[in-house]
Design a protein around this nucleic acid. Structure first.
Lengths: 177, 177
DNA sequence: CGCATGTGTTTCACATTCGAAACACCTTCG
DNA sequence: CGAAGGTGTTTCGAATGTGAAACACATGCG
C-alpha cells in the first residue's frame, strides 16, 4: 500500500486529445472482446484456454528443436512462472515435451509432439474463424494494411524498450498509403 | 474435456492472408505490452492493479448516482463475478460505495467517494503517461484518427453481437481520409 | 581452480479471474 | 393474487497469473 501522504510523484504532463483516448479505449475493448470470444471457442473446440493454445501454436511454428521458455514468454507477454504453469499442463496432456538445450544446460526447450500438432491443426481453423468473423471481416484490406503497419511499428519500438522507454525519440510514424 | 475422437466440428473455411495475421498479432502484442506496463505503473503509483483503477475511472466519469454493475462489466469486458470481486476491494478501501437503485431493487449502483476521486486524480496522469509514451507518441494524428475510426466501427458491431455474430452482414468499413 | 555474479527456470504463496449455482427482485400471465 | 420465468448480483470452487525466493547451470576473474 503506497503511503497516502507521499508526494504525488509528478509525471511529464502532456495534454491528451479525446481522439487519442478514443483510439486507446477502442483498441482495448475490441481486442478484449475478440480474445474472450476466441478463448471460449477454443475451450469448447479443443478443450484448452486460448493461453495454452497460443503457446502450442507458437511452438508449432517454430524450429523442430523447440523454443526456449523465455522466448515464448516474451512473445506472448506472460510471466515466466505463468508460462511454466501452462507448459506443465500441456506436457501432462502429452502435447509438448520438455528438453534441455545442448549448449546451455539451463535452457529448457519446449518441443511439440504429434498429438500437439494434431491439436493445433484442429484449433487453428476455429481460432481463425473467430478472429475473421469478429474482426477481419469488418475491415477493408486497406484498413488491415494500415493497422498492421502502425502497430508493427509501435511493437518494434516497445520490444527494445520494455518498461520505461527513452525520453529522447520523437514520434516516428507510419506513412499512410 | 472434449471427446478426442469426436468429429472436428467443421468451420466455414476462409483463407486468411498473412497481412491479416500480421495485423491481428501486432494488435494483440502491442496492447498486451502497454497494458502490462500500465498495470505495473499503477501498482506502484496508487497501489492498485489497472483492473481496479479502470473501474474507478469509469465510475468517476459517469453520473453522480453511480453506475450499474452490469454496465461496468460490459464496458470493461470482465465477468460479473470478477467485477464484484474488484468492487468489493475498492469498497474496502473506501474508494467506492455500493447503493441500490430506487427504480429497480436488484440493481447495485457503484458510487465513487471523495477518496476515490482523489485516487483517480493521482492515477490518471500516470496511466496517461504510460499510454502516451509507449503508444500515442509513436503515432501521427492521422494514424490516431484512422485507428479510432476503424476500431470504434468494429466495436460497435461487436457490441450488438456478443458471441456468435450474424452471418448476414458483409464487411462494412471505415473510410480513409 | 573456486568463489562471486548473472541468467534461465521452477517453486511457492497469494491475488485475480471465471462459470455455475444460489439469491433477490421484477414482470407476466392465468 | 401467485406461480413461472427473467434479469441483476453475489457466492463458491477451481483454474490461472504474478512476483519473490529458491535452484541450477554459466561465466568471469582473482
Amino acid at each position: 500500500m503506497p503511503i497516502p501522504g507521499s508526494p504525488p510523484d509528478p509525471v511529464p504532463e502532456r495534454p491528451v486529445s479525446p481522439e487519442e483516448m478514443r483510439a486507446w479505449a477502442a483498441l482495448l475493448e475490441t481486442t478484449a472482446i475478440v480474445q474472450h470470444a476466441a478463448d471460449r471457442r477454443l475451450r469448447t473446440a479443443v478443450g484448452m484456454p486460448a493461453a495454452q493454445f497460443e503457446i502450442l501454436a507458437r511452438i508449432f511454428e517454430g524450429p523442430k528443436e523447440g523454443l526456449r521458455m523465455t522466448e515464448i514468454a516474451d512473445r506472448l507477454v506472460v510471466s515466466p512462472s505463468g508460462l511454466t504453469y501452462q507448459v506443465t499442463r500441456l506436457v501432462e496432456r502429452g502435447l509438448l515435451e520438455r528438453g534441455t538445450s545442448a549448449e546451455d544446460e539451463r535452457v529448457v526447450l519446449a518441443r511439440i509432439t504429434d498429438a500437439g500438432r494434431s491439436v493445433v491443426a484442429q484449433g487453428v481453423p476455429q481460432y481463425v474463424d473467430v478472429v475473421t468473423t469478429m474482426l477481419l471481416d469488418h475491415l477493408t484490406s486497406n484498413d488491415l494494411t494500415t493497422l498492421a503497419d502502425i502497430l508493427e511499428g509501435v511493437r518494434g519500438q516497445l520490444r527494445s524498450a520494455p518498461l520505461r522507454p527513452r525520453r529522447s525519440g520523437a514520434s516516428r510514424s507510419t506513412k499512410r498509403r
